[in-house]
Design a binder for these strands. Structure first.
Lengths: 239, 239
DNA sequence: CCCTCTAGGATTGTCGACAATTTGCGTCCC
DNA sequence: GGGACGCAAATTGTCGACAATCCTAGAGGG
């Protein structure tokens, strides 16, 4: 009250994150980037030593990742990084398609289209920079940032929550399969067109482009599969 | 190998669930049914005593529920049951709409439409029974079972995972607002028509009906709100 | 030679106690 | 009387140790 608004704009509690949350985030990043390859067993004792914490908080972080679906727990056996089967690629992109479609709809109808488009354009700029520097990792990062921003822009707590895991899994797909995507210009172009459709408020175009974007990715990562079919044909893989 | 198939059909490890999972499920039910009203503070010590377990497993269960979004944790303050604001009702149904739309699409294109329709019809039968007995709780339970079955039928691990929390939150809405829904026959009828469209493979009708189903619910639970708009107008509520 | 049973090691699951932090209330000063 | 400071109780966060369970390797018997 004594402080005039605008001052000290971003002070926060010195430790705003719980220890478990910090650990979870670090593990998430490690899984995402492939530092912890799929199938790796994570020993509690070993990790606790590496993080210099007790097994209590570490276990909580693990449980968190398990419930997010990034780790699978076998009772009295251990925790393992999930390994993505071809069927999972299909499943991930089908789910992403659903989430991002909803996010796009809310962005389109939210009224702040231009502001959202500006934010998204910023990530496309990052993509273009990464592309010009021939840095595929940065390109993928910026790509995911675009989609993350789109979902954040929807203003839906639940879409954001559900998308978090999906985007990490997407990153896992990209790193695992080392997708030599399409031409980088094309990749940037797709996102640019998406923004334009959003700015114009052209729902049909925006949704169609988004769907095509997902369809492209699936066909590239899991050849022979299509989101337009109901099931993933090649392997049993999915439940 | 020594056992002929078909014998001992459903033996499982004596304790197939971890204690944390058991506790989590019990708390979930309690939250869902309103036994733990929104805003309630959950003391770890107290609950540990009630469940006759140490605080370790109990904390894990809590963390699980926090990551699911059913509990909110304030550091060094405690754990509280989330309270749903009007904006959340909108958010929940918007998210459900996205998930169930995707599930319906996969059910429609999966090839097993008739088998899925049969399963769904079973839940509608339960609804009809509950309706005839004038048991609104059982009716809501059967209603949610319908939607859960639909999502399970999609065969998507991720849709199932994401929907779990949404359905619980839906239940919270229904119990909190004690929605005196529409006429029960109408409520059953809506689901029946949905099944028929699925059976016929009529995508457009099925999706339209589903969307209308959600729209109805939102307008009933949060009057003045519509999924067709991008944002929830009445209160700030949502981020 | 193969199968079975047993002992060992290792890992997870659980517990009780200690430390850190927040909140509420009582007190003191102005 | 009003406000700020400080103390104390209660709650969460963290830790180390013990117990239960599972995989593996090896010996013994068929």
């Amino acid at each position: 009250m004594a402080l005039p608004p605008g001052m000290l704009p971003e002070i926060e509690p010195v430790s705003r994150e719980s220890t478990a949350a910090v650990i979870a985030r670090q593990l998430r990043d490690a899984i995402m980037t492939g530092a912890l390859p799929p199938g790796t067993q994570l020993g509690e004792t070993e990790l606790a030593a590496r993080f210099q914490v007790s097994r209590g908080p570490l276990r909580e972080a693990m449980q968190h990742l398990v419930s997010e679906g990034l780790l699978r727990s076998e009772r009295h056996r251990g925790l393992f990084v999930i390994d993505l089967e071809p069927g999972d690629v299909y499943d991930i992109y089908a789910a992403r398609s659903a989430i991002e479609r909803a996010a796009m709809l809310r962005a389109l109808r939210g009224g702040d289209r231009d502001r959202i488009a500006d934010v998204l354009e910023q990530t496309v700029t990052e993509m273009a920079t990464a592309a010009s520097e021939d840095d595929p990792t940065a390109l993928s990062t910026a790509d995911l940032k675009f989609h993350e921003a789109l979902i954040n822009a929807s203003g839906s707590k639940r879409l954001v929550r559900m998308a978090r895991t999906l985007l990490i899994e997407t990153r896992m797909c990209l790193t695992a399969l080392q997708s030599t995507y399409q031409r980088v210009e094309e990749r940037v172009e797709e996102h640019t067109k998406l923004i334009q459709a959003l700015r114009d408020g052209d729902e049909e175009t925006a949704l169609t482009l988004l769907e095509a974007h997902m369809e492209d990715a699936v066909q590239r990562l899991a050849p022979g599969t299509s989101l337009r079919d109901g099931e993933a044909p090649p392997v049993p893989g999915n439940a």
